[in-house]
């Protein structure tokens, strides 16, 4: 996906480091850095830049009571941390995502999206972003669409190609409104991805064009 993609990825990591992403995108990035040591390393660099900026930041005096209050709190045991049992299902999926799934994804509510493509919407999102899992049959492609916002797609199982590049487990494709892409599953297993979209998705081209994609699968 060329420059657009690396710039898009850089933006995502940078905004995750700063804490300014919406919840759905943050889940995607936390999953991404679980599956990619390279991305994790880049994130650590960005966080260390923020550490330096914090250290150089203009200090603002805190209430003189704060330290006293804290000194009293130090001995208190923290409220029993709700240890979420780590689900032993879907173990190949990254934990930041896995905690939203309460059954093996094979048994989830997959709905028809497109010929050869099923989707499962996940209850994640706090600012209108759409978060879903896509399952694309070998050789099939998700619809061609363009985006008003940004769409990021993390490969969890299998692989897809956007016509220029192969994306495998742990790879993220980022598309913005300039990109018309149509991820097509490669290899002989289903490709399962986590897709997060900011803003609305509109189909590219005429209705006829959309219909042709639809029937061609």
């Amino acid at each position: 996906m060329g420059e657009n993609s690396s710039e898009g990825l850089q933006n995502l990591l940078q905004q995750y480091a700063a804490g300014s992403l919406n919840h759905g995108m943050a889940v995607l990035v936390a999953s991404y850095v679980t599956l990619s040591s390279d991305a994790r390393h880049r994130l650590e660099e960005l966080e260390s830049l923020n550490g330096v900026l914090l250290n150089e930041a203009e200090p603002v005096a805190v209430s003189p009571m704060m330290l006293e209050d804290l000194q009293r709190l130090l001995d208190e045991a923290p409220a029993a941390a709700e240890e979420k049992p780590v689900e032993e299902i879907n173990e190949d999926l990254p934990l930041p995502l896995r905690q939203f799934l309460n059954q093996p994804i094979e048994n989830g509510k997959w709905r028809f999206a497109y010929p050869g493509v099923r989707q499962m919407t996940l209850p994640i999102g706090d600012r209108g972003e759409k978060v879903k899992l896509l399952k694309i049959k070998p050789g099939k492609a998700a619809p061609r669409h363009s985006h008003d916002g940004v769409e990021a797609t993390l490969v969890l199982r299998g692989a897809f190609s956007d016509g220029k590049r192969l994306f495998q487990r742990g790879d993220v494709a980022v598309a913005d409104h300039d990109v018309k892409h149509r991820p097509r599953a490669q290899g002989d297993e289903d490709c399962i991805c986590l897709a997060v979209t900011d803003g609305g998705v509109r189909f590219a081209g005429s209705i006829a064009h959309v219909a042709r994609d639809f029937f061609a699968g």
Partner: peptide, 15 residues
Amino acid sequence: YPELDANDPSLVPDS
């Protein structure tokens, strides 16, 4: 805030 978990079995280790 979603964060990676160092004990996650799916974590791909550093080289």
